Simulated scan of single mutants.
Amino acid sequence: MTSLSIIRRGAGAGLTALAATAVTVLAAPSAYAAVQSVSVEGSDHKVGTTYTITAEVGGASGGLLVYFSDNGEFIGAPKVPWPPGSSTIEWKPSTPGQHIITVEQGGSTKSIVVEVSKASSGGTGSSGSSSLSGTGSAGKLLGGLLGVLLGSS
């Protein structure tokens, strides 16, 4: 065997190894996909009610911190997936309307849209009366201050 054919065989093996590496690198991003699904408990979401957001995570970066956000604002601190493959956080919407809940982990993101409605009134308040004096100490204090300011104490 001549040195020229050894060089050709070596180059051929090198190209084969290079092609295999390129295929592995091109296939790698799907192996690193982290956030697989996002869900919010319940179906009739109301302002001021607490819900659990659950993210199912996996892939090679499954152990990285999980970040939750509501319309771009982080919800709490980042979470370590526990038990493995899952991460949860409590969420209490403060405004009605459309909320885009996004979960991020290791460069992977997934979002879900949640409609939040106003909290229903409990019906315990009085209607038709605009008196500022209440039966509690805060109501009495406020009524007394307003009486002094208005000159009718």
Rank of each mutant, 00 (worst) to 15 (best):
A11Q: 13
D70E: 09
A13Y: 13
A119S: 14
G122S: 14
V57T: 11
G63N: 11
P83H: 01
Y67W: 07
V114E: 02
S127P: 02
A31Y: 09
K79W: 01
A17N: 09
T54R: 15
E104I: 03
L64C: 02
V66G: 04
T102C: 04
S130L: 11
E90T: 12
A34M: 04
T24F: 14
S39G: 12
G72K: 13
W82V: 14
A55L: 10
V116K: 05
F68L: 03
S126Y: 11
S43Y: 07
T50D: 05
A11D: 13
G134E: 08
G10Q: 14
G97D: 05
G59Y: 09
G42T: 07
P84S: 12
T52E: 11
S111V: 01
S108N: 09
V25R: 01
V47A: 07
D44L: 08
I100E: 15
L149G: 13
K140A: 15
P29E: 01
P81G: 00
I100M: 07
Q105R: 12
S120Q: 13
V38C: 09
G107E: 06
L146Q: 15
V23E: 01
A13I: 13
G97K: 03
S94Q: 14
S121M: 09
A20Y: 04
V57Y: 08
S94W: 03
K110L: 11
M1A: 15
E90F: 03
G12N: 06
S61F: 12
I112H: 05
G122W: 11
I53S: 02
P83R: 09
K92H: 07
E73M: 10
L150S: 14
G123Y: 05
Y67F: 12
P93Q: 00
V47L: 05
P93V: 07
T49A: 10
T16S: 14
I6Y: 12
E73F: 07
Y51I: 05
L26P: 06
A55E: 08
G97N: 06
G12D: 10
K46P: 02
A31S: 06
K92Y: 00
S129T: 13
L149V: 13
G42S: 03
P81R: 08
S39K: 10
I101D: 02
A31I: 04
T49H: 12
V116A: 00
W91R: 03
E41F: 03
G10T: 12
G72E: 05
I75F: 10
E90A: 13
G63K: 15
G14K: 09
L145M: 10
A28I: 06
S117C: 00
D44F: 01
S69Y: 05
D70S: 00
A13K: 03
G123Q: 10
A77R: 07
A22S: 10
G123V: 12
T2Y: 07
K118C: 05
S69A: 10
S131W: 00
I89H: 07
L145D: 06
A27H: 01
G62P: 01
T52W: 00
S43W: 01
V80G: 02
G128Y: 11
V148C: 07
G42C: 00
E56T: 14
K110V: 05
P83W: 05
T24K: 02
